[in-house]
Design a protein around this nucleic acid. Structure first.
Lengths: 236, 236
DNA sequence: CGACTGCTTGACTCGGTTCAATATCCGTGG
DNA sequence: CCACGGATATTGAACCGAGTCAAGCAGTCG
């Protein structure tokens, strides 16, 4: 949706690192956190951590899937492309979320995943899951929890971002964005209008008008490029 | 959303039966299909099959959850209620789907579930899942598959039913309804206007106008009360 | 057969889109 | 560090799709 969406695919940039899962801050919520030490050591030799710049594509809808990703830091958007229009953003994934889980059982990605800002991801090859099958110790339960997150978020998305006047929907979206900030506070990194529009299902122009109104009302105060303090109280 | 939504809760009607899972037609897709025979025998002693009339509520949002349900036949709607408006239908569950899966891990239902027509459900008490924990043989994987269904449906819902002109959205909805018919064919049981409206996020009046137009165009031909033949080709 | 509920249709209004022109931002390269 | 230029955001005006309000209609069930 931004012009950079197709710049980069996984591995095209040199910023790959060892995963170092032992010291991962989000490990308790992450996918592989239940593995026994022995399994874990084996598993994480195959995991690659990577820092992706904003706009890079992690994977594409309908691509053959060979890995699952965990968001360590940053924000991903999942885009469901449709033949007709340009598609729609159907979910946002923040720290601790898993992307591309459908790879495990379906072998194909359901969405296009794009980093909305610089993000740090861990890439877990599918083969790792296969090898872990035998020694699983609650791995599947962990996957269930991740799926639950997705389903819950999807329902909320539908109920809160697709119903009612645009102003309210954008208000709720900003609240969600604030929650998704890595340092969940009151400052938010405002995505491009095109993204806001694709999320709530309106045109860029309408999104712009609503945001402009919020700025005038003092609900959004600029503190840096694309960065605003969000005063949840002044939403009218 | 119909006037009968609150008529009945599970167990208030006498139509409870032994589950007879051994001969269940949808067992291969259902939740407990992977249990070993011994476990299975134990498990299904606790399962109760029930026929619910149209409009009955299976469970309510925020209710304490004590069971998961499998749809044997019929159609459920999941409603996400919101303080303000009357809420929104966020998913439809047809044969083989599981309802209330969140009970297992969260103990509270996320939606209100209502039968849209006479439906046959199997009620699996939470205690059964607890007892099965020890002897699980891929049960969690089974649950994963069900969650995947939910997530996939949610994404499709969002991309297809919340974007574009109302006429197109209702067209796609009718296609989905046709797929959800128990005898997946070209005849569909048309839900009340209020439901159609709640699904695509418009008013009853607008839904009515679109449906009327489709009838005139010959895309919908009445063959019985609430029952129509759907000619997918004439959607314009 | 009457009453009720849900469906249809019409006229008016308004929010959001569309198309178009202008302003601003921000990353780039000098 | 500044100036430039393409991309993004803003704003305006006309239009139109869907909402709202209100009235009449038709199934459906006692």
């Amino acid at each position: 949706m931004s012009h950079r969406d197709h710049d980069l695919a996984w591995g095209h940039r040199p910023s790959e690192l060892a995963a170092d899962c032992g010291r991962c801050a989000i490990r308790q919520q992450a996918l592989l956190s239940v593995l026994r030490e022995a399994d874990f050591a084996e598993a994480y030799a195959s995991i690659r951590r990577s820092v992706l710049p904003a706009g890079s594509q992690v994977y594409g809808q309908d691509d053959t899937a060979d890995a699952v990703f965990t968001v360590r830091r940053g924000l991903l958007k999942l885009i469901k492309r449709r033949p007709a229009d340009g598609g729609r953003i159907v979910r946002l994934l923040g720290s601790g979320a898993a992307a591309g889980l459908e790879a495990i059982t379906h072998g194909v990605y359901w969405h296009t995943a794009v980093a909305m800002r610089e993000s740090e991801l861990c890439r877990v090859p599918l083969a790792t899951f296969d090898r872990l099958e035998a020694s699983r110790d609650g791995l599947a339960e962990r996957i269930v929890l991740q799926w639950e997150k997705h389903a819950f978020a999807a329902d909320r998305w539908l109920a809160e971002l697709c119903t009612g006047p645009v102003a309210e929907r954008i208000g709720r979206l900003l609240t969600m964005l604030a929650e998704l900030e890595d340092d969940a506070g009151e400052t938010i990194h405002l995505p491009p209008m095109a993204d806001l529009a694709s999320i709530v299902g309106v045109t860029r122009e309408t999104a712009s008008r609503v945001i402009a109104e919020l700025k005038r009302a003092g609900a959004l105060t600029r503190v840096a490029p694309h960065t605003y303090v969000f005063d949840r109280g002044r939403l009218t």
